[in-house]
Design a protein around this nucleic acid. Structure first.
Lengths: 222, 222
DNA sequence: GTTTTTGGTGAGTCTAACTCACCTTCGGCG
DNA sequence: CGCCGAAGGTGAGTTAGACTCACCAAAAAC
């Protein structure tokens, strides 16, 4: 009772600083509660402001979510392209991207889940900046597949987009249980994180070599 | 003005008949509007009853959704197992299930979307009857893969579950744009339905043979 | 020191899921 | 045929949370 339901005086920040604080708090609350269960009032309270203040910075709750995720995307995939450039061979590049994708899901299951469930499913998604960010990201994998096909390391009779979607969709589906459960600390105990070391390699093999056995598993020597 | 905002007299149905009518109306409304945009009042109105009446039959809006989808699942996959039994060869059975899955998505994109977005992502899903139905369905594909491996037609060094998830997840991801857009008749014009004939085969080839070229594409003769 | 700009407030409105006390019709039973 | 209990249906609530707005006060501009 020391605060005695204290009325809030008023801290005061610049627009940039307040935006930063709101994005930080919003990420935490969205990650912990999911979109619908998250209350704008709680995000505001964590910054020491009142609910109405949030709407001075973001027009809607949804816009706040999109801003949180855009920030995360930029943090995350900032230097993927650079790292990728230092890897030789289509198959090795493929494996790298598969492993990175798995790692993103393992490390940020709640934000991935928001991306999959709240953003990608909405009709306004194709026009949002997040769509552009996602295209840039998934374009990395697409280009690896296309280049692999152009140089004869991959077969050229399959749509690169189909291959890309098989990989991303397959990973998402395989890790879905973890994505759905890893919300509260309580449930995270039950949901075991995907073991990247044991997943990246079989996945790469499956995509590259297929389900049917190869006669002597001949490996091309460059 | 001919109805003059007519007050509703009162039709009256048995519990079974009213439940049926509500499920029918709810499927239409959920399919057209999605879960959040669907109003319980509208579902009720389509049956000529008032909103409160719905809650005599279903405890929550969500329970109504689950009942709608459970009904749909049962309609849909009633005789899959039987049809599947008449097909020989793991690869052919795989192709059959891939094609059927694509067909379900093409024919019921809105309900698939509800399944993916509203049901599967919820924490109560693993305890719901829908989860059991889905396990039964996806078990068909899993068993095809396992049997194919047991009989040497498929390689045995890959987790069957990983293969299954790659297929289901890949299909879902590849058709996502259609799933997300095919809601209103207006938007369905833009979202072209997946061409099953042009998708089932490459998908089967990709999964079976892999991304890397095979020397002479040797096909086993049984 | 005055004015203007802008961060912040708190008391609203609005919508839609859900509740509840009551009404009314139907089927059974003397 | 008339009563009565059960069950379908009603409509006026309650509640929660997103969003709005008129106003205030501190900082910045002049």
């Amino acid at each position: 009772m020391k605060a005695a339901a204290a009325r809030k005086p008023a801290p005061r920040l610049s627009r940039a600083a307040r935006t930063e604080a709101l994005l930080h708090a919003a990420r935490a609350v969205f990650a912990a509660k999911g979109y619908e269960q998250a209350a704008v009032a709680e995000i505001a309270a964590r910054c020491g402001v009142v609910e109405g203040a949030v709407y001075k910075y973001f027009p809607t709750k949804r816009a706040l979510l999109l801003a949180v995720l855009a920030r995360w995307y930029e943090e995350m995939f900032g230097d993927y392209a650079r790292e990728l450039a230092s890897i030789d061979g289509a198959r090795e590049r493929l494996r790298f991207l598969i492993e990175r994708h798995l790692r993103s899901i393992r490390d940020w299951p709640q934000l991935c889940r928001l991306m999959f469930r709240e953003v990608r499913a909405q009709p306004d998604y194709p026009d949002s900046p997040l769509y552009a960010l996602n295209r840039r990201y998934s374009g990395l994998l697409l280009r690896v597949i296309e280049e692999g096909a152009a140089q004869g390391e991959f077969r050229a009779d399959l749509s690169p987009r189909l291959v890309r979607d098989l990989i991303f969709g397959g990973i998402e589906h395989h890790t879905w249980r973890y994505l759905a459960d890893a919300r509260t600390p309580a449930s995270r105990r039950a949901a075991r994180a995907p073991d990247i070391a044991r997943l990246a390699d079989p996945l790469t093999r499956l995509v590259c070599e297929g389900l049917m056995p190869r006669a002597p598993t001949r490996r091309k020597r460059a």
